[in-house]
Design a protein around this nucleic acid. Structure first.
Length: 587
RNA sequence: GCGCCCCUAGCUCAGCUGGAUAGAGCGUUGCACUACGAAUGCAAAGGUCGGAGGUUCGAAUCCUCCGGGGCGCACCA
């Protein structure tokens, strides 16, 4: 099962091949000029250069050969040498039929093996904020997309649970609660199974501890020592620290729940701590690392570099680790655990670009990632309608929870405005609002290219009109409703298609599904799927406005149209699922 | 100083290996509901693709320079 463009490229490519021209010049794509043709091939112009002939002449030779094939209803040469192709409806019908027998609607398996996606960037004891939104949504979507493509894609939260900040919080607790058993050297019993503080208290203590360490050198030294003790396995500190992790994970999961975002690997930086000494020793022995100004560094500049490439810091001059150290150790951990690992993809703010370049080079230099693609997808920032970083009305940084809740509340207000879903229970209605809000959020996020900054406009994204998540949900629900009615009236949904002029545009667009998925996978960019889903919804809406379906007298045409509706719905649902958007039964 | 990213319609953004008349949504103007959900559809107006050179039969796309904006450059993650 392949796409129409793939089939056509094969046919046209063979003709180029017979003329002793490169086969890939026969690449066929959907026409840029749908008023002129369904498909086009631009290869004759490039071939003209190679063969030193007139492009229209070459195009004519190719057209003559293609005319032998009866799948074409029309072949024309236009302009300097475009080959315009139209298919017969019979061929289109048979193609749709074969697509329909495939539960992937023609999308081939595009790859296999494991891929680790490292996204989110959450930290222990630090509330999730607006900056966590983009990597979470993009990373989660890429996970679904790559799974659909055939890979075993695993999301790794790679929690920031290590380093000085942990020592800062521990020492702050020790100052405030010296009587707690965690700090009693002679304590022999079990530590409290439940924390003696709430997440809210923890989250509040962190910035206070951090500030105290900035203000006072002795206080900072105290935090350093606590960090060292924690890293050396101090039992009380470890027990206390475990509470930080437990409370933080609970809060993170609670934040992510409304968005249905999940991870497969809930490990933190601390998990790889015990590898660090071994890695350091190995790096030293193989002269990969060196000592500079008292620090251990991995030089990563290469000959031919156009820019200055600072080394990766492995141990600071005080012996402490940095996030580069844990990134390297994490890579080491992953290659030992995941034996079929093909790629590691980091979805992290683009400002980390240099850091990841250093890490990737260091990992390659150490020989860890010779067969593994390392990729940093740098996401841009979310700005408010004024083009500046997104803030609350009071001017504070927006928390993740507020961001999501604000949009869900807006979605509910939209339901009220439109007098929708009023016959439902409050609970059911709240669930619709959540789905609409999440659709609004995710569609906005994913329809932008990851690396671009974008403007967060709640009014626009929650609108039911235009290129929005809610519009897509509306179209999908409308189709669902139509199909339900057809079923109630015992109408037949055919497996065969009957394509007439009014059906053609939708049918052709349905056949582009697999090309779109391929493109999105190849570029790691879900925005192609967003664009396609919108075009599909809109094409359906035009089709729906132009055609009688339930009242169509020609039974085979009616059955075919119902099938087109069903296919549109299914493909829309598949794409929305990849985007992490779920369609309600009704709304 | 070195490097990365961005600049496309009034606004927000697409534009995949260079191709025909540069697209979409919003907004604006007009048209269409006694058909299956009008939360819709149809149509119009709106662009020297930041600027200048270059490569090419052909450039929003590739190269060079310039302008404007954002960001990053070993001991914070």
């Amino acid at each position: 099962m392949t796409s129409l463009t793939h089939i056509l490229s094969g046919i046209v490519g063979d003709v180029f091949d017979k003329l002793e021209l490169p086969k890939d010049l026969g690449t066929v794509k959907v026409s840029d000029r749908p008023d002129l043709a369904q498909f086009q091939c631009n290869g004759a112009m490039a071939a003209a250069k190679i063969a030193k002939k007139n492009p229209r002449e070459i195009a004519q030779t190719i057209c003559d050969a293609l005319l032998q094939n009866d799948i074409f209803s029309k072949i024309e040469i236009a302009g300097p040498g475009f080959i315009n192709l139209n298919l017969t409806d019979e061929f289109l019908q048979s193609h749709l039929k074969s697509m329909n027998t495939d539960d992937r609607y023609g999308v081939p398996i595009l790859g296999e093996g494991q891929i680790i996606l490292d996204y989110g960037g959450m930290n222990v004891a630090k509330a999730m904020h607006v900056g966590h939104f983009r990597p979470n949504v993009i990373g989660d979507c890429l996970r679904s997309l790559l799974r659909f493509a055939g890979y075993d894609a695993l999301g790794d939260v790679h929690l920031g649970d290590w380093g000085l900040q942990m020592g800062q919080i521990i020492s702050e607790f020790e100052i405030r609660h010296p009587d707690w058993p965690y700090f009693d050297k002679s304590y022999k019993g079990n530590y409290p199974p439940e924390p003696l503080f709430t997440y809210q208290e923890l989250e509040k203590i962190y910035p206070e501890a951090s500030q105290a360490c900035k203000d006072n050198k002795d206080r900072l030294e105290q935090a350093r020592q606590a960090t060292v003790k924690l890293q050396d396995g101090h039992a009380g500190y470890t027990a206390l620290w475990q509470h930080f992790i437990d409370l933080s994970l609970e809060d993170i999961k609670d934040n992510l729940a409304p968005l249905n975002i999940d991870y497969d690997i809930w490990k933190g930086e601390a998990c790889v701590h015990h590898f660090i000494a071994k890695i350091a020793e190995d790096m030293h022995a193989r002269n990969i690392s060196e000592i500079s100004n008292g620090a251990t560094i991995i030089p990563v500049s290469e000959q031919g570099d156009k820019k200055e490439m600072p080394p990766l810091m492995f141990f600071k001059s005080d012996g402490a680790v940095t996030y580069g150290t844990t990134d390297i150790a994490t890579i080491y951990d992953r290659i030992k655990l995941y034996l079929d690992l093909k790629k590691m993809i980091y979805v992290v703010d683009y400002r980390q670009n240099l850091h990841f370049e250093q890490v990737f080079r260091a990992a390659t230099k150490a020989g860890y990632t010779t067969d593994i693609d390392m990729l940093h997808i740098g996401n841009g920032t979310v700005n408010g309608p004024d083009g500046k970083p997104f803030k609350t009305r009071e001017g504070k940084a927006m928390t993740f929870r507020d961001l999501v809740n604000t949009v869900i509340a807006k979605a509910m207000a939209r339901l009220d405005e439109a007098d929708l879903a009023t016959d439902m229970s409050d609970e059911a209605r709240q669930e619709i609002a959540r789905k609409v809000g999440v659709a609004a959020l995710k569609y906005t996020e994913l329809s932008n290219q990851p690396h671009m900054d974008y403007i967060f406009d709640i009014d626009r994204m929650t609108a039911f009109e235009g290129k929005t998540g809610p519009y897509l949900l509306y179209q999908a629900v409308r189709i669902k409703s139509l199909l339900k009615k057809a079923e109630e009236n015992n109408l037949t949904i055919a497996d065969d298609f009957k394509i007439e002029a009014k059906d053609r545009a939708l049918a052709l667009l349905l056949s582009e599904f697999s090309d779109t998925v391929k493109l999105a996978v190849r570029q790691y960019s879900p925005h192609f799927l967003c664009e396609y889903a919108f075009n599909l919804a809109q094409a359906f809406s035009s089709f729906y406005a132009a055609c009688h379906i339930m009242s169509e007298q020609d039974e085979s045409l009616q059955a075919s149209r119902l099938k087109l509706c069903a296919m549109t719905h299914d493909i829309l649902e598949k794409i929305l699922n990849i985007l992490g958007i779920h369609i309600p039964e009704k709304m």
